[in-house]
């Protein structure tokens, strides 16, 4: 097998934090902003994207010596579209409610740049097992980011979490958070928080 490097823990954790697709690389923001109005939707979207990432990573990696270089992007898109169609029908079969809440955004996973980016930058250069592990890491990192937004937006915007009320009765929901502007504000808030942590860490390293 042509596996130049060993599979390390880093293959998996890369996508979780250091190269988190949303917070660090700012990729695939459309679904991040659009479907995170409840924690449940965020989770469903994250799982669907992870499924497509892992499956397409596996197939692209298997076919990496077969696909000619000139038509590789088109081939990747067709492979991704196949798995997205599968995910689309699966979600429809499992929960019609979630399917209706996510709407066209499940099918829009096709144009999520994280997936094509992984196929091009990672799966086409590494063995199947490695591609799967890396895809899973990226997918979980993406789901984590979606949940970060979804939880904040649902708790503040409707006073509940996964549909269960968590805020006291007297709490007046800030409905702005479930509306489109709230998505932008919450993501901006998370980015600033991470930037602040990074800054503090850098300063700490300098003084030490």
């Amino acid at each position: 097998m042509s596996q130049p490097e060993a599979i390390t823990l880093q293959t998996f954790t890369q996508g979780l934090w250091k190269e988190n697709p949303v917070f660090v690389m700012m990729l695939g923001l459309c679904p991040v902003l659009a479907v995170t109005n409840t924690a449940m939707n965020s989770l469903a979207m994250g799982v669907a994207t992870t499924f497509v990432l892992v499956c397409s990573g596996f197939l692209v990696s298997l076919l990496r010596h077969v696909i000619p270089k000139q038509v590789r992007i088109a081939s990747y898109i067709i492979i991704i579209a196949t798995f997205v169609t599968m995910a689309d029908y699966l979600i429809q079969a499992i929960s019609l409610e979630v399917y209706q809440a996510l709407g066209a955004f499940i099918q829009l996973i096709v144009v999520n740049c994280i997936i094509l980016g992984r196929a091009e930058a990672y799966a086409s250069k590494n063995g199947p097992l490695k591609a799967v592990i890396n895809g899973a890491g990226m997918g979980i990192g993406f789901t984590f980011a979606l949940l970060c937004l979804g939880v904040v937006r649902e708790v503040l915007g409707s006073g509940s979490l996964f549909g269960v009320q968590v805020m006291p009765d007297a709490f007046q929901p800030w409905s702005i958070f479930v509306l489109p502007p709230g998505a932008f504000f919450v993501l901006a808030f998370w980015l600033m928080l991470f930037a602040w942590f990074a800054e503090r860490k850098r300063k700490g390293a300098q003084t030490a």
Binding site: M26, L179, P180, P181, G182, A183, F184, F185, L187, A188, F189, L191, M192, A195, W196, E199
Partner: peptide
């Protein structure tokens, strides 16, 4: 901390409010 992407997102949020 607000430079770059975070600021752009806040701007987008305000624009989105206006469009509502």
């Amino acid at each position: 901390v607000a430079r770059g992407a975070a600021l752009t997102l806040i701007l987008a949020g305000i624009l989105s409010l206006a469009f509502m």
